[in-house]
Simulated scan of single mutants.
Amino acid sequence: MFGISALGWVHTLGSLPAIPAAAYMFAIHGRIIPRSKAGAVYFVSMLIGGATTVLVAHAPVSYGIGAATLLLLVTGYAIGRLPAPGRAAIYVETIALSLTAFLLMVPTATEILRRVPDGHPLVTDLHSPLLLGVQASILAALVIGLTAQIIYLRKTGKAAV
């Protein structure tokens, strides 16, 4: 179904829980919270997705996306656990994990549009206006979201000082 191999299904179903986990955390907390139940689900799902990318990817750029996702994921989850990471840690954590969500959503949206409906996908060309519009919308959400997150962190950080 949808031209996805068995390994492709492992990749897809393994990384799929990261989407509602991220959506939940963005809606409730305004950012991904690593030390929470949803954060644990997000971490494991993203780890599965990023690690299996090298096994299912067909385009060379996919390897870069998978590696960048894993690097940002580990950075975002590890920075808060370092001894005396300083005030910048919350910014690094927030930016790194928001970028992982972006790197999850761009290929996800692209693959959905290129595979659904089965046999007659909405997009057959990577330069399709629909695909480019969806990708631009995801980029705009990243820029607006990161800006809002940083402003919020600065405001709450000043209030705490």
Rank of each mutant, 00 (worst) to 15 (best):
A23T: 08
L55I: 14
A27I: 12
I33G: 01
F26T: 07
T53R: 11
G39Q: 08
S45D: 02
T52F: 15
L47V: 04
L55T: 12
L47S: 08
S36A: 05
P34H: 00
F26I: 11
S45H: 03
G50V: 04
S45C: 03
V54D: 08
G50Q: 05
F43L: 08
G39D: 12
A27E: 10
I28E: 13
H58S: 14
I32L: 10
V41C: 00
K37Q: 03
I48V: 15
A57M: 15
V54Y: 14
F26S: 07
R31P: 09
G50Y: 08
M25E: 12
A40H: 04
M46Q: 11
I32Q: 03
Y42L: 06
V44N: 00
S36K: 03
G49K: 01
A23V: 10
A57F: 15
K37C: 01
P34Q: 00
R35K: 07
F26R: 05
Y42C: 04
G49A: 04
A40F: 09
K37E: 05
V41S: 02
A51S: 15
I48M: 14
P34M: 00
H29K: 07
H58G: 15
A51Y: 07
A27G: 13
Y42V: 02
A51K: 03
S45F: 04
Y24L: 11
S45G: 02
L55K: 01
G49D: 05
V54L: 14
Y42I: 03
I33C: 06
P34F: 00
V56Q: 13
V56S: 13
V41K: 00
Y24F: 14
A27V: 14
I32Y: 06
A23Y: 01
F26H: 10
I33A: 08
I48D: 12
V54I: 08
S45W: 04
H29I: 02
V41N: 01
L55Q: 04
T53L: 09
T52D: 10
G39T: 07
F43W: 03
G49E: 03
T53E: 09
A38D: 13
A38E: 15
M46D: 02
R35N: 12
G39W: 09
A27T: 15
H29Y: 15
H29W: 11
S36D: 10
G30Q: 07
V44P: 01
H29T: 05
T52C: 11
T53N: 09
T53G: 13
M25V: 04
A27C: 11
H29F: 12
V44S: 00
